[in-house]
Design a protein around this nucleic acid. Structure first.
Lengths: 206, 206
DNA sequence: CAAAAACACGAACGGTCGTACGTATTGTTT
DNA sequence: AAACAATACGTACGACCGTTCGTGTTTTTG
């Protein structure tokens, strides 16, 4: 008896708080997609979720930690809606096409009320220094690496002749990001325009 | 005698205040390019310029008016550095090329400490409603209209075959805007990459 | 079951915010 | 010179901010 040989009990010891943290961070992504990461406030989040301000403060310690948690939560939302569904497609051209399709869906019928979290927050923090800037930069790098990897695979299969993988990834990101902002600014042609350019880029190559 | 037939004396009666307003608004664009239009504060601006908070408040009345003044000031800065120097070139392809060149210079060695004001603030206010959103949308529309006009003229002169003017304007804006954010996020390849794509788009057509 | 850690809260702190008011001071017009 | 509007300031207000402290409560650990 007493065979309490569980090693990583630390994971279970935190489940309660971790769940609360995740719920708060998830709502923080919603708010930050509209108001920005700087627009986040502990009192606002606590009020929205029926918690006390000090309770939220205890869970995250500092506002910067809350912002970092929101960035991670937004990363998970993006993976869940854009990346993961595309992993059922074979690597290379089909998966790249699925990534782009899912991404357009993601900004057309926004999961977050403010549209694409990455687009909103990158512009907000691109001129600042500190952990939040760094986390957003890492997130951007990760996304570009994934795009480039699929492009390279597609090229190894004979697609996308004459394209530089890095440049094509940059161009795809630019078009979708600007479509996101344009659409939210009231330009109904932004998403269709970007869509058609992307189709031309990925479509009848050579 | 008494031939005081000046009509618009109201313009001169306000010159003093107008000059102060312009100076404050100009500094507000610097601050907002980094901290965002929401990050502006009357006290911060007053402190930077050696004025009193209430003095600044009297000049603009409300923070929203200050934000609107910053948007207009940023528009003038952009025109001064990107548009006006390009007007010496003949309309059409040469002027379009000059606009793009000046624009790349504008983000490469930023006039405003936070880079391109339009990129930063569009993402910040794209999901909000109100006069500031509308002013930024109008500014975007004006810029797109200018780009499309020059593209159409270039096409009338036989350049840029097979391109849709609206789509090409969108693509140019997307590439430069994303280059601006990417460069500020620490990606040294962002501007050269965008530059080469733009050169390919505008260069050896057909 | 007892000990310990994590959690959640109310209250309060100093600070900054936007705004409003009253009042000199400046600049311009009549 | 007198009248007046615009400008600039000090002060104050209420609201919200992030953070900290002390204290119960809950959950997990030993």
């Amino acid at each position: 008896m007493g065979m309490t040989d569980l090693r990583n009990t630390s994971d279970q010891r935190l489940v309660k708080g971790a769940r609360a943290r995740a719920a708060i961070a998830r709502h923080a992504t919603d708010v930050a997609s509209v108001e920005g990461l700087t627009g986040l406030s502990l009192g606002r989040l606590a009020g929205d979720l029926g918690l006390s301000k000090s309770g939220v403060a205890t869970l995250f310690g500092t506002k910067e930690n809350l912002q970092l948690a929101a960035v991670q939560s937004a990363r998970e939302v993006f993976i869940e809606h854009v990346v993961r569904p595309a992993l059922t497609e074979p690597a290379g051209m089909p998966r790249l096409q699925a990534l782009v399709d899912n991404w357009f869906d993601y900004i057309s019928e926004p999961v977050l009320p403010g549209g694409c979290f990455r687009v909103a927050t990158a512009a907000e923090f691109d001129s600042r220094v500190g952990p939040v800037h760094d986390a957003l930069r890492d997130d951007r790098d990760e996304w570009f690496a994934l795009l480039e990897k699929e492009i390279a695979k597609a090229q190894a299969d004979g697609h996308l002749d004459g394209h530089d993988a890095h440049a094509l990834a940059f161009e795809l990101d630019a078009l979708v990001a600007t479509a996101n902002t344009g659409a939210r600014m009231g330009d109904d042609s932004a998403i269709p325009t970007a869509r058609s350019i992307v189709d031309r880029l990925l479509g009848p190559s050579t």
